[in-house]
Nucleic acid binder design. Sequence first.
RNA 1: GGCGCGUUGGUCAAUCGGCUAAGACGCCUCCCUUUCACGGAGGAAUGACGGGUUCGACUCCCGUACGUGCUACCA
Length: 507
Amino acid sequence: MSDKVRVRFAPSPTGGLHLGGVRTVLYNYLFARQHGGDFVLRIEDTDQNRFVEGAEEYIVNCLKWCDLEPDESPEKGGAYGPYRQSERKHLYYEYAQKLIDAGYAYYAFDTTEELEKMRHDLRSDENPNPQYDHQTRTHMRNSLSLRPEEVVSLLNKNTPYVVRIKMPQNMTVKFTDMIRGEISFDTNIVDDKVLLKADGFPTYHLAVVVDDYLMKITHSFRGEEWLPSAPVHLLLWEYLGWKDQMPQWAHLPLILKPDGNGKLSKRDGDRLGFPVFAMDWTDPKTNETTHGFREIGFLPDAFVNMLALLGWNDGTGQEIFSIEELIKKFSIERVHKSGAKFDYEKAKWFNHQYIQHKDTDTLVAYAKPFIEEKGVTTDDKYLSQIVTAIKDRCTLLSDFWSQGSFFFIAPENIDLAAIKDKWNEQKKTFFETWVKDLDSITEWTHATLEQRFNDLLLQQGLKKGDALLPLRIMLVGGKYGPGVFLIAEIIGKKETTERINRILSQL
RNA sequence: GGCGCGUUGGUCAAUCGGCUAAGACGCCUCCCUUUCACGGAGGAAUGACGGGUUCGACUCCCGUACGUGCUACCA
């Protein structure tokens, strides 16, 4: 076995890629990069009922957006392919057969109805979920309970069957988790899991073990929900004779819903108004779209940084990490044991931090699509002035529109009520004079504008505070935005004049 | 029900036996700003419970409670 670190992410293409998924990728990626190893993407398209069209491509695109690209994947290929489980079917069959031959697995011919009947008959208050295990298997139709001739005959008749692992009795299975330390299970309480389904596809249990072995995976990080099936996997490594090559495991804590308890689901996002997927996902079956962090206006590195800190920190209190820093400082041993509730406010705070620290050109490139999707065209030079002027009040990239739309189009909804009460002839005269005066300004900067404004104010005996708000309402439409004179400078003489005249006629 | 895993402010969390228990998000107050934000300065708010071990326990051990995950021919 080579000493090179190899990790993998093995998503099942059943829908969008959620926070937990991206975090698993991220931790894998960081670990691989840190050790100069390989990061492998393989696709678990083994369940035909759950497989969703387009989901694989979606996953690949999410990884691209986050800049967590694998070294080996179905797309890129690699020395250990194929990387789609559907293309590796024969391998799983081969190893399932080996397990049967060695007496570690067996054929089970039970129909769905027979399984249901068994579960129904055995169900009680003390045992609400009867298992197919060392106790019940003797009463079922399998190659352990049936006579050998019967088994041969059933197989010859092409009777559908599954292959189940034969869990041993009275054994304690132990392993060391990189995050949780030593964990042990009693084999009596784990059931005879299906390894190979009737359609010939493997279940996750067989597939991970076979693939991790053949692809020489050295470290395996996955969600905590897999912990209870770890003994099955461990026994498979042993039964297949690969135990000395078993990867080191780390079970990652769950990401929980912000309110109440439980695993974060896509429904929670819909319900509470935040994304849970990396990018927009439209389910081709239902045509329903679930919003993603990208489309809602997150910067990919902010998203990745936020996710890295949801379950890990370096112990110093530092919260902002570049990907390079994360690669350097990440350690799987410092990943927390307990699940973390997702906090969307905190996630937005990360994005705000990143927006403040990005250079203008980059920010312009990111903000542009969010402006242009509103149907306005813009050039980078103009946009960069705006980005500089308003970025400190933008949390999401989409805020560049909500906070800056008045730079592109004259405001439609004017908050006239805000100035009407205190409007009078004197102010009217002031603005009429000022707007005429604007024409003579040759040096169109906020400083000059403000100077001329102040001068006229003095001349007409008005207080600055009385005129500033009306001017803002005229240019912006509401009580928000950066300095008014800066706004006037950016939108230019013509636009400023027009907006003032337009409102004056309405007052 | 069984089994696994977990439990420090509302949330994310530091601490690896010396704690007057960091920091961040959010919240509140004030300052800055003749808008709204940003920013700055403060503030309220925490060790689930009960037993041990120890000179000393948030930290180690045991029990209880609570939470969560699994208990599919799903991953």
